[in-house]
Each structure stands twice: as structure tokens, then as C-alpha cells.
Design a protein around this nucleic acid. Sequence first.
DNA 1: GAGTGGTCTAGACCACGCA
DNA 2: GCGTGGTCTAGACCACTCT
Lengths: 239, 239
Amino acid sequence: MDEPFGFRPLYRQVYDFMVKRITEGTWKAGETLPSEQTLATDLGVSQGTVRKALDVMAAEKLVERRQGKGTYVAEHTEESALFRFFRMARPDGERVLPECVAEEVASGKATAVESNKLKIEPGAAVVRIKRTRLVDQEPTVFETIVISAAMFPDIETYAPLPNALYGLYQTAYGVNIVHTFEQLRADLARKEDAKRLQVPLGTPLLHIDRVAIGLDGLSVEWRLSRCHTGKLVYAVTIS
Amino acid sequence: MDEPFGFRPLYRQVYDFMVKRITEGTWKAGETLPSEQTLATDLGVSQGTVRKALDVMAAEKLVERRQGKGTYVAEHTEESALFRFFRMARPDGERVLPECVAEEVASGKATAVESNKLKIEPGAAVVRIKRTRLVDQEPTVFETIVISAAMFPDIETYAPLPNALYGLYQTAYGVNIVHTFEQLRADLARKEDAKRLQVPLGTPLLHIDRVAIGLDGLSVEWRLSRCHTGKLVYAVTIS
DNA sequence: GAGTGGTCTAGACCACGCA
DNA sequence: GCGTGGTCTAGACCACTCT
């Protein structure tokens, strides 16, 4: 347990160890972890130290704890992942579950912008997904998603893709999305927007540019969402 | 230390006690709290329990800790408050400090919408502030702010109002903003927007509807921001 | 060196879920 | 009733800051 210079607390080392276990797939989504006491004796530290590492992981939503039952590797299910990363809601605050239609999946080579967003080589193989999301049967969001083909081989075989893509990334490829960076702008509907969202040209749209980051810190996905904010709004809580 | 039914952990009770101290002004912004050991013996609990309460408060950014020095009541300064609640940034991610001009302060009676947003009686006295925020000398955000005159008596005497209003709320009135709810839409510039932001009518704008909540859970401020997202974007990180 | 927050331990007891 | 996570304690030592 020596450290060269930086001084990494014990509970941080325990954290690193457990994150590695999840990244490698030793502990998979939805599985229960060994009990705090078991982990403690296995790793030769006190239960309090394991607990502190788990506190951090629970705060990052990497694991979920249930008193009396155990600690689970967090799953990116419909409710959890969608409600966490899909921020569109009704003005009264009620969250909605969108439906996906008109999905198009195509292969290609990364453009300059795409390679920059995904931190991959220009020209590397990528997969582009376009789809429209409906809320209450009305087209509301037009999404363009770009991912590395190397990270997600043969993803087109999973078509039709699920509503919550992050769940597929996790269960089929062992890729856990832990956070996202988004930039929002206002823009006007162009031809493709107008067609997809069935709105007049020039309708004001909320333009969301999102990069999703995985557990290992790599850029996993670049997504552009063009949202019609007629009936839904983008909801943010800063705490 | 009895509890009627809900079972409130000791550290929660300690938390409540300390929040009350801050709300009442016994401990003011920027001051240092008693040491963990002192608090523990004063309250008749162990240091670990005080520590756990402070952990929660630090996570909520109510206090700041500095190893070797002490624990301080968090201050809403330019950097901290603006960078926390003002989300506009350059596309490369760099945060900016805006400047405020063309400020108008007026008194009035709460409309139905205002009373609903601020949870006050319709017709209650309110103060309305309009101002334009410049970034790089260019008008970028047109804000309309509504607050209860009862909560902030004689606020007009502080004109010109500071860039970080939350700092004034805290230091002059003892009101701590702890979180905000925002709803974002895309909209088109109307007459007043065009004039304030010096853009053509019909320019797409990011419309932000924000309610700020204080330490005691009350709605403190309602703010509408209309942002020109030509050079700046609204940045969100979901972690 | 004295005082502060940060880490770590060992052990006790409580609340919860389940068989 | 057992095993799990959740709370609480008491005490030790470490890292940081200031004098």
C-alpha cells in the first residue's frame, strides 16, 4: 500500500479496485456485490473503508444500495437512464417516456468534427443513427447519434435499437455511461428538421450537442438533438 | 434525542441544528464554524457524527472545508455563485463573467403567474428588475427578475445592483439560495428582445424560466432570461 | 508545535428484507 | 433469526496551515 508521491487514500484505492472489477465485467450490471464485510476481509481493510468507497460509487450512481438486501451494480434501465439523461419534461415537471420511430442506421468514416468529438482518428469507422422521438404520438426530438464502430461492432444487428441506447451499450458491450456534457443553443428548423418534426421551416428549436463519457473517461457517443419545445421543455435542477 | 415516528438519524438532527444556525444568521457567510471537536462536545455527540453532518452540508455547498484551517460558511461570491448558477459559456467550455447594463427597477403587485411562481398571494408587493447582460461588450442575455418586496425591503437602495444578485440576497438579507429549477425553451426574438439584444426580430433565442429556492425551501426569485446563443451556449454537465 | 480537517480502525447496535 | 446495509462511538494517526 505504498504510494510514490500523490498520496492516494486507502478508500480511493479500494474504489479504483472495484471500478476496475465493473469495467472488466467481473461484476455485471444488476448483479449484487459481495457484502461490505466480505469485501473488507478480502481486501484486508476495515468495513468503514469499504463503506466509504461505496459511498463515492453510490453518489456517482455506479452502484445502488438497498438496506437489508445488498449493493447492486447500477443498471441503465428505461426509467433510470432515460430519466437521468433525457431531460425533456412537461412544463408542470412531469417526466415523459418518449417512443422512437423512423430509425436509420448507416456506416461511414469519421469527419473532422466527429473525430474531434469522439477523440478518434479522422476517417475511423463510425456508425450514424438518425431517429425521431415521439411524445404523445407527436414528433418532438430529431436525434443524430454518432458512435465508434470499433467500440460497438455489429450494433446494427440489434435493430430496432432500444429507446434507452445506454442500456444496450452497457448490457451488450460492457460500456457504462457515467456522465455527459451538453451544450444548448436556440436555432431555426431547417428542411430535415421540418420534415422529421412536422413543423414549418423556421420554427425555433432547442439544439442540444451532447458528448457522453464512459467509466474509463473515454468519449463514447456524440449526439445532436433538435427539440421542438412546443409542449415539452428541457428541465434542469441545479443543487 | 427521541423521535416520534420518522426516525431521524442523529447526524441529521445535527445537520438541522447547524442549518438553523446559518439561516438565523448566528453563523454568517464567510465566517469559520467551531471545529468539529468543539461542536461534538458542545452537542454531546461524537466527532464522527458532526463530521457526517458536515459532509452533507459540504456536498450541498452550504459550507466549505479547508484542511488545516477550518470549516467556513460558503459565500456567494462572483466566481462561486455566478459559475454555479450562470450556465452560459463559450463553446470551448471556458466560463465567462458577464457585465450588467441598462438596469430598470420597478415596484408592482404580483400577477397571477408571479404569485404562482413565488408562492405568494396575488397582488402582494413585488419588485421587478430588468437588465441586459453583456459578454465581450456584446448584449447576450436579457433578464427579467421578480422578487417579493416583503422578503427584500428597500432593495432599490442598493442600486446599481451587483452582477451576482445571490450574493446581495445573502449578505444584505440573510437569504441563501441553495438550488434552482430551470425550464428551457427555444423562442423567437420579439420587439423588446430585439431592442435589448440588438438582434433582428425573429432571431432564435434560448428562453430560460428559473425559480430559485432558499435554504428554508421557500421560492425566493423568479427569473426569465432570453439568451442570444450566437457566441455563447448554455452548458450542462450531468454526473 | 498546536490546531484543524482527513483517514482508518474495531466494535456496538439499529433498521430492513427475507426465508 | 439471520444477513444486509445504516448509524454511532472512541480513539489513533496523517496531512495541512499558521505561528
